[in-house]
Write a protein that binds this DNA or RNA. Structure first.
Length: 769
DNA sequence: CAGTGAGCGAGCTTCCGCTTGACTT
């Protein structure tokens, strides 16, 4: 008979703890939740709000193992995380394993160290049913919202769509940001900078850059000002030195790690989580799904030792951080290296880089402030009221800046770091002007979200949890509410006026404005679904909805409210809205927009969301003649497409004539326009317009393609029919068993003479990698 | 990387959180 069984949530944690506890303890993992609502049904009695739980198929084997182990143990310790979800996991274990609730030993530890765990074992408690009920309320509410709302979308918008407390608000953020950008009107202004020459002690000259304390609204004001500068003298009116300090950012949470890895390493949110998972499983870092910035005393002490030995005592400053983000539950520590004395690790390139980032952020958080001296010099003009201001920054003591500096999202916007020194100047000193420049600028509109900045916004609103940020972002892309893509900016003209000597020169330059890469853009479906939900379910779409229900979950957790009563309250308002919306007349009409009529027939032309996405339709379903359909191309949107653009789409496919007795047709497919002849397709080059291309050109394209086809097969082998030497766009390659393999450059010239053995060598070598 | 190319009448689809594999690419 086994003495003790300890159950934790994660297998990596189980392995570590087992070492600390010795042979009287067996440690197993539940791999998260072991029971949930049924997958395909609502699984909730909507009169009593009783959930109907089941053990999912993929967990059955694990549960049997846990059951057997529990039966053969004298004592079972439930050691899931100390938060709402963790408490519920313990309760489900209790129920499923048939443990006696009164005799349950529920324990929690705040850090994975031997003393902490031995201490926890000394203080077992019972299950906190209030906390469990708060979790049940959370789970049931999310199911009700998701499973009652989604079918409304299936009927009113398009099949297989989804809605939920978290994802729908995430889409709303992106849709609204896009509308803000559309509505934004950029205003122009003029920024004036001056360069002065200042003599150094050794007789050489230094340059000082200063900016005018006023921005001009019109070009006339600029010219008037530059004119005044011509005869003006420039005098140093004041020098102010101010000491400043900069403090390090707190250690990483899931959300801040995702943001920094995106900015500094270019990782996607899910990439970051995958790499972090590896580091965690290899014992390199603490748990990677956390909203806590807390560091264990172990880490604080070893950081101090490490920093002192690397850079000296003056660089060390132990700090305790406290979490105050909305809805934080603090079941774990911050994300940090398990051993601070490991300054680097073995692993893949990505693992090394992410580890390095985590190590530096953690170390910096335990380091001294940076001491900076900021110097501000004001320069007065004799002939104008405005003043120039020059700023200098000197780092007196670098402190944490030695290892780490946090990035910000809008860093790339020309606001480069201004840390530079000023040459010595004295009050009353006259400066020699060398050049004054007025540059036209434009006010910056809102920027689109990236994956990482959306995560930050969601966390700020208290929506979603560390374990769901990455999945939420992929869900809204999978449902095609949102697309990651590039938005091309527009070319813009701006003027630069320069005063040099006594002459003012004017130049006009061009720049690209509003160029954005890898940003989240709403699709037509995303916009339509959002507008629909905003119209009928504003309460769910409210940015504060989650915060409001979280407050109620907290009240339940404190034992001051009944969880089923809370759900009843919610449902009695929610359910009638669902019913009402379901029963509105209009089906699949959301987002429909009439563009006008087709000139030839007078039939109505409109855009709508069809079975397979946005389409243009001519005529109505009830008409005598069947309606015609055309899918919206990727570069057009339902909100902005015009009647003419819509009618263009119906000019394809068109038949050009016949060749070798079969028709030649120009069509438009997923990959652009093509020529179809005898069931074979040839892509139309970009230089040809599908609406005007001639039969002769099309025939030429068909012939070219045929010739290419004959040259594609270089060599086949009798002994191995699955293998073939092919000729592709990038030279010869091998095709074997449905896969393609690159041929080394040296073998390109003798591709036609390759032997079977040589080919198989290439294939086996590349398979090894 | 290496070729691709539709129609709008199968029944099904869906939530949020907690955790990792076992599958391919």
């Amino acid at each position: 008979m086994q003495k003790n069984l300890v159950i934790v949530e994660s297998p990596a944690k189980a392995k570590t703890i087992e070492k600390f506890l010795g042979k009287d303890y067996k440690v197993m993992s539940s791999y998260g939740h072991i029971r949930d609502l049924k997958k395909k049904e609502l699984s909730i009695d909507t009169d009593t709000f009783t959930p109907d739980y089941e053990i999912p198929e993929e967990k059955k084997k694990l549960v049997t193992e846990l059951k057997n182990s529990a039966k053969n143990s004298e004592k079972v310790w439930l050691a899931s995380d100390e938060d709402r979800e963790g408490e519920a996991i313990s309760w489900h274990l209790c129920e499923v394993l048939g443990l006696d609730e009164e005799k349950t030993n529920r324990i929690v530890f705040h850090e994975i160290t031997k003393p902490a765990i031995l201490e926890a074992i000394k203080h077992p408690r019972h299950l906190d049913m209030n906390l469990v009920n708060a979790q049940q309320a959370r789970r049931v509410l999310d199911r009700l919202v998701g499973f009652r709302l989604s079918p409304v979308l299936w009927r009113k918008v398009k099949p297989a769509l989804s809605a939920g407390r978290v994802q729908s608000v995430a889409v709303r953020l992106i849709v609204e940001r896009e509308r803000e950008i559309q509505a934004f009107k950029s205003e122009t202004y003029y920024r004036v900078t001056a360069v002065f020459a200042v003599p150094n002690e050794d007789g050489t000259m230094s340059e000082v850059k200063a900016e005018l304390d006023k921005r001009f609204a019109t070009h006339d004001e600029v010219l008037a000002f530059l004119d005044k500068c011509k005869g003006s003298t420039f005098t140093v009116a004041g020098i102010v030195k101010k000491p400043m300090k900069r403090t390090p950012a707190p250690p990483f949470t899931t959300s801040t790690l995702q943001q920094e890895a995106a900015r500094k390493l270019g990782f996607t949110v899910s990439q970051t989580m995958m790499v972090a998972q590896h580091l965690y499983e290899n014992g390199r870092i603490t748990y990677m799904r956390t909203d806590s910035v807390n560091l264990s005393s172990l880490c604080i002490n070893s950081s101090k030792a490490e920093i002192t030995s690397l850079w000296g005592e003056e660089y060390s400053k132990p700090r305790q951080y406290h979490t105050h983000s909305k809805g934080a539950q603090e079941a774990h520590e911050a994300i940090r290296p398990t051993y601070m004395d490991a300054t680097s690790i073995d692993g893949t390139q990505q693992e090394k880089r992410l580890y390095d980032l985590i190590w530096k952020r953690t170390a910096a958080s335990q380091m001294a402030d940076a001491q900076i001296e900021k110097t501000t010099v004001t320069i007065r003009l004799s002939d104008a009221d405005e003043q120039f201001v020059a700023n200098g920054e000197v780092v007196k003591f670098d402190g944490f800046l030695k290892v780490y500096r946090e990035s910000s999202d809008d860093e790339a916007d020309g606001q480069e770091d201004t840390s530079h020194t000023l040459p010595p100047m004295t009050e009353g000193e006259q400066l020699q002007r060398s050049e004054i420049t007025a540059t036209q600028r434009f006010s910056q509109g809102p920027v689109r979200y990236t994956e990482a900045s959306l995560v930050r916004k969601l966390e700020e609103l208290g929506i979603g949890r560390p374990s769901t940020y990455a999945p939420t972002i992929s869900t809204i892309q999978q449902r095609e509410y949102v697309q990651k893509g590039d938005k091309k900016g527009e070319e813009r003209l701006y003027t630069v006026d320069t005063l040099k000597g006594n002459a003012i020169t004017n130049r006009t330059k061009t720049e690209m404005a509003g160029n954005e890469k890898g940003k989240l853009l709403p699709t037509d479906i995303g916009i339509v679904v959002n507008d629909f939900l905003m119209k009928y379910f504003p309460a769910i779409m409210d940015y504060n909805f989650t915060a409001k229900v979280e407050q109620q979950f907290d009240t339940i957790a404190e034992g001051k409210a009944q969880w089923t009563a809370m759900l009843e309250n919610f449902y009695k308002k929610f359910e009638p809205t669902v019913e009402k919306t379901m029963n509105t007349r209009e089906e699949h009409k959301a987002g429909e927009r009439e563009l006008g009529t087709e000139p030839a027939t007078g039939r109505p032309v409109f855009v709508k969301i069809g079975r397979f996405g946005p389409v243009v339709q001519i005529g109505k379903a009830e008409d005598k003649d069947k309606p015609r359909f055309a899918q919206l191309p990727a570069d057009k949107s339902m909100e902005t497409i015009t009647l003419d653009e819509a009618l263009e789409l119906f000019r394809l496919p068109r038949t050009l004539g016949e060749y070798e007795g079969t028709p030649v047709v120009i069509g438009s497919g997923r990959f652009g326009p093509y020529v179809m002849h005898d069931k074979k397709y040839v892509s139309l080059p970009k230089t040809e317009n599908p609406l005007t291309v001639t039969l002769d050109t099309a025939i030429e394209l068909i012939r070219n393609k045929r010739q290419q086809e004959t040259q594609r097969h270089i060599k086949t082998f009798e002994d191995e029919p699955k293998l073939e030497v092919m000729n592709g766009r990038y030279g010869p390659y091998l095709a074997y068993d449905g896969k393609n393999y690159r041929l080394p450059k040296a073998m390109h010239d003798k591709a036609a003479e390759l032997t079977l053995e040589e080919c198989m060598n290439v294939i086996n070598n590349s398979k090894k990698k």
